[in-house]
Amino acid sequence: MAGVVHMTTARDMGLVACTTCTKVWPIATERCERCGATLQSRDTQSLSRVWAWWVAGVMFYIPANMYPMLSTRTLLSTSEDTIVGGAVELIKYGSVGIAIIILVASVLIPIAKFLCIAYLALSVRRGTELSAGARFIMYELVEYIGRWSMIDVFVVAILSSLVQLNVAASINPGIASLSFALSVIFTMLSAQAFDSRLIWDRLDEDDVARAKHSDLEGAR
């Protein structure tokens, strides 16, 4: 990725770009005349919204892991499974593959998402070693993969509507499914609130600073 290339941005030219329809306007314009979206050269409130949704997402992720996701009742037994508990159960019965899918989708990915969003938001303020190109890939991954965590909620929905076999077997949703869904939704909103243009602004400033630094180093 050509991460280090400095590009002329709309802001450099005294223009503001509409992120919805890609049209550009003079910088003082407040509303895009073409699509009606609110225009902001850089979303200054972006980071506080990112953090607000992020905190909400983390808060709901904790009960999602403590309470049962679904309760399975068969003729002989009733069991209530948390996310991790269910995966452990699957490993016991030998379906390691499915257990791994579930662990990746509902433990690894959510936690990785929290860490990535936090890292991106912090790096806007503090600067970072990682190139802007790499951070943008990270941002796109978070945006793309974030939605896929909903798969666990859908599985619970499908199972509990389908497995209603009178006394033979039945599956019912647990309260954790709600908090897990909310956690996923809030994390998606957090990622959407992030103004990705901030990644590249930092690059421009960093570039100049780095160039200056290396010139001085060379002189010594």
């Binding site: 590009m7 002329t8 941005t9 709309a10 802001r11 450099d12 030219m13 223009l15 770009a17 509409c18 992120t19 919805t20 890609t22 049209k23 550009v24 306007w25 003079p26 050269s41 943008f136 990705s196 243009r197 990644i199 590249w200 602004d201």
Partner: peptide, 14 residues
């Protein structure tokens, strides 16, 4: 004429 310009919605490049 601003009509023939396009800005990248993700990184603001013009």
């Amino acid at each position: 004429n601003l009509d023939d310009l396009i800005a990248c919605p993700q990184c603001d490049a013009l």
